[in-house]
């Protein structure tokens, strides 16, 4: 299912939370929306899910327009909110059943979906425990389960791993990856760059309501003009000049046997570079590839770090 968002705008008072946002997610595509706190991610997602009225702009899911009254378009979307929106005083299974019924599922089909979802998120053993007795990570997983129970064609996740331990976080990312592999389109917001890099085909970077960059990680990095770096440790010193003249290499700085080489595409150029080193009679003890990440892109574009402090 294709999502097309055009020129979306929403302000609260005189604060513009989302400003002229356009984006497109193709069928089966995994799209990451990145941005620091207050960038407008949740606001954008609320509008995309028909929970918040845009001041301007248009949202199409397939050939249906999303509005706050659109019933049909909602069928296609699975929404996982940033906060844990589950009934603490109901069991995991009861939570899932309620939302399954709201999505029109009944009887044996509903039973099957509830069981599948619990299985997918590793909650099958706790199906009949109240959600309030769950750990934070398990509640997060249930939160996600409610959003995907009805097998939407577009799954929208708003920071689904916030405050989650590494184990639950992995379970969540695995489950999301599996769903995406089944062809579900994904809209994923986070301020964890590594999650976006792992899960998403394409990312959009939002800052103060404005989309400041969009593309695949590689495209964004290229746009940034930053090079990959190779950190090398050799068994004997080599001539910097010779390394510099290897194809794709922009710069090389060595201090004895340790050095760093800047190169346009590390993975691609590595073989040739290693050959050049071998030509000089040296052997490589270790090599580390450092690719500029989305953090660097963000820092470059805004002059600010993506996350303040430890958040």
């Amino acid at each position: 299912m294709t999502l097309v968002v055009s020129r979306l705008r929403r302000s609260f008072g005189d604060r513009v939370a989302v400003d002229d946002l356009s984006l497109r997610i193709d069928d089966g595509e995994r799209y990451g929306l990145l941005g620091p706190n207050g960038a407008g991610k949740t606001t954008a997602i609320s509008m995309i899910c028909g929970l918040l009225r845009p001041d301007a702009g248009r949202i199409m899911v397939g050939d249906r327009e999303v509005t706050t009254d659109a019933v049909e378009a909602r069928r296609e979307i699975g929404f996982v909110p940033q906060e844990i929106a589950v009934y603490g005083d109901l069991t995991a299974a009861e939570n899932l059943r309620l939302f399954g019924r709201l999505h029109g599922s009944r009887g044996a089909e509903l039973d099957r979906r509830v069981a599948e979802t619990l299985e997918l998120l590793g909650l099958a053993g706790r199906a009949h425990d109240r959600a309030e007795t769950f750990s934070g990570g398990m509640q997060r997983r249930l939160n996600i389960g409610i959003g995907l129970l009805h097998r939407p064609s577009l799954l929208v996740l708003d920071e689904p791993t916030v405050g989650v331990d590494p184990q639950s976080r992995n379970a969540i990312l695995d489950a999301v990856e599996r769903l995406a592999a089944d062809g579900m389109s994904l809209l994923y917001t986070t301020h964890y760059m590594e999650e976006a890099e792992r899960l998403c085909d394409r990312v959009g970077i939002l800052d103060e309501g404005v989309m400041i960059a969009e593309g695949s990680r590689r495209e964004l990095v290229a746009e940034l003009g930053q090079l990959d770096r190779l950190r090398l440790s050799l068994d004997r010193p080599v001539d910097e000049e010779v390394i510099r003249s290897a194809p794709g290499v922009a710069d090389a700085v060595f201090d004895g046997v340790n050095g760093e080489v800047s190169v346009d595409d590390a993975r691609h150029r590595l073989t040739a570079l290693l050959a050049a080193i071998a030509d000089q009679g040296a052997a490589v003890r270790s090599v580390e590839v450092i690719e500029p990440d989305l953090e660097a892109v963000f820092l470059h574009l805004t002059g600010r770090a993506l996350r303040d402090g430890g958040a």
Partner: peptide, 15 residues
């Protein structure tokens, strides 16, 4: 407060 009310609305059911 928990966001459940909003979540109900993402179901394909008229408000």
């Amino acid at each position: 407060a928990s966001g459940i009310s909003r979540r109900h609305l993402t179901a394909p059911v008229p408000t």
